[in-house]
Amino acid sequence: MKRSLVTRGRLRPAPLTGDAGGWRATAGATGLAIAMAILAPQAAQAVDVNSSDYVPAPAGTNLLLFYSTYTTSSQYTTTSGQTLSNNTGIDTYVDILRYVHYFDIGGFRADIQVLLPAGTAYNARLNGSELSSAAGLADPILVSTLWLYNDKTTQSYFGITPFLYLPLGQYDENDALNMGENRWKLDLQAGYYQGFANGFAFQIAGDVMWYGNNSDAGTGTQTLSQDNTYQFQLWLSYAFAETWSAAAGYSRYWGGSQYLDGVATGAATQKDQLRFELSKFITPTFQVMGMVQRDFNTSGGFEEDFRGTVRLMQVF
Rank of each mutant, 00 (worst) to 15 (best):
residue 269 T to I: 02
residue 206 G to D: 09
residue 237 S to K: 05
residue 271 K to S: 07
residue 279 S to A: 15
residue 247 A to C: 11
residue 206 G to W: 04
residue 245 S to Y: 00
residue 263 V to F: 08
residue 230 Y to Q: 05
residue 251 S to I: 03
residue 250 Y to F: 13
residue 255 G to D: 04
residue 288 V to N: 07
residue 268 A to P: 05
residue 246 A to T: 15
residue 267 A to S: 15
residue 243 T to V: 04
residue 207 D to V: 11
residue 257 S to K: 14
residue 288 V to I: 15
residue 222 Q to M: 10
residue 226 Q to H: 02
residue 242 E to Y: 08
residue 266 G to W: 04
residue 219 T to I: 12
residue 256 G to L: 04
residue 206 G to F: 09
residue 263 V to L: 09
residue 223 T to M: 04
residue 225 S to Q: 01
residue 213 N to V: 07
residue 216 D to H: 15
residue 292 V to A: 12
residue 289 M to E: 12
residue 290 G to C: 06
residue 222 Q to R: 06
residue 244 W to D: 08
residue 227 D to K: 10
residue 259 Y to M: 05
residue 240 F to L: 09
residue 292 V to R: 00
residue 224 L to P: 00
residue 284 P to S: 10
residue 273 Q to S: 06
residue 278 L to M: 14
residue 210 W to V: 09
residue 275 R to F: 06
residue 225 S to T: 15
residue 228 N to G: 02
residue 291 M to G: 02
residue 231 Q to M: 08
residue 208 V to N: 12
residue 205 A to C: 09
residue 293 Q to L: 13
residue 248 A to L: 14
residue 221 T to V: 09
residue 258 Q to L: 10
residue 235 W to N: 05
residue 252 R to M: 01
residue 295 D to G: 07
residue 254 W to P: 02
residue 289 M to V: 08
residue 236 L to R: 04
residue 217 A to D: 06
residue 261 D to N: 15
residue 282 I to Y: 13
residue 271 K to R: 12
residue 270 Q to A: 06
residue 279 S to Q: 13
residue 220 G to C: 12
residue 221 T to G: 13
residue 252 R to N: 04
residue 282 I to V: 15
residue 247 A to G: 12
residue 279 S to Y: 03
residue 277 E to D: 14
residue 249 G to P: 02
residue 229 T to E: 03
residue 244 W to H: 13
residue 217 A to T: 12
residue 258 Q to H: 11
residue 284 P to L: 10
residue 283 T to I: 09
residue 242 E to H: 08
residue 259 Y to R: 14
residue 237 S to C: 06
residue 234 L to Q: 05
residue 242 E to R: 05
residue 285 T to P: 03
residue 280 K to R: 15
residue 233 Q to F: 00
residue 288 V to G: 04
residue 273 Q to D: 01
residue 273 Q to F: 00
residue 279 S to W: 02
residue 233 Q to W: 00
residue 234 L to E: 03
residue 226 Q to T: 10
residue 251 S to T: 11
residue 270 Q to S: 11
residue 241 A to H: 06
residue 252 R to P: 00
residue 282 I to R: 04
residue 214 N to Q: 11
residue 282 I to A: 13
residue 222 Q to N: 13
residue 279 S to K: 14
residue 254 W to T: 05
residue 254 W to N: 03
residue 213 N to A: 14
residue 249 G to K: 03
residue 264 A to C: 04
residue 235 W to F: 09
residue 223 T to C: 03
residue 234 L to M: 05
residue 206 G to N: 10
residue 274 L to W: 14
residue 237 S to G: 15
residue 286 F to W: 11
residue 264 A to K: 14
residue 215 S to W: 01
residue 206 G to P: 06
residue 218 G to S: 12
residue 268 A to H: 00
residue 253 Y to R: 01
residue 232 F to W: 10
residue 256 G to H: 03
residue 250 Y to S: 02
residue 295 D to K: 07
residue 256 G to I: 10
residue 285 T to Y: 11
residue 264 A to H: 13
residue 275 R to W: 03
residue 241 A to F: 07
residue 283 T to L: 12
residue 277 E to C: 05
residue 269 T to E: 08
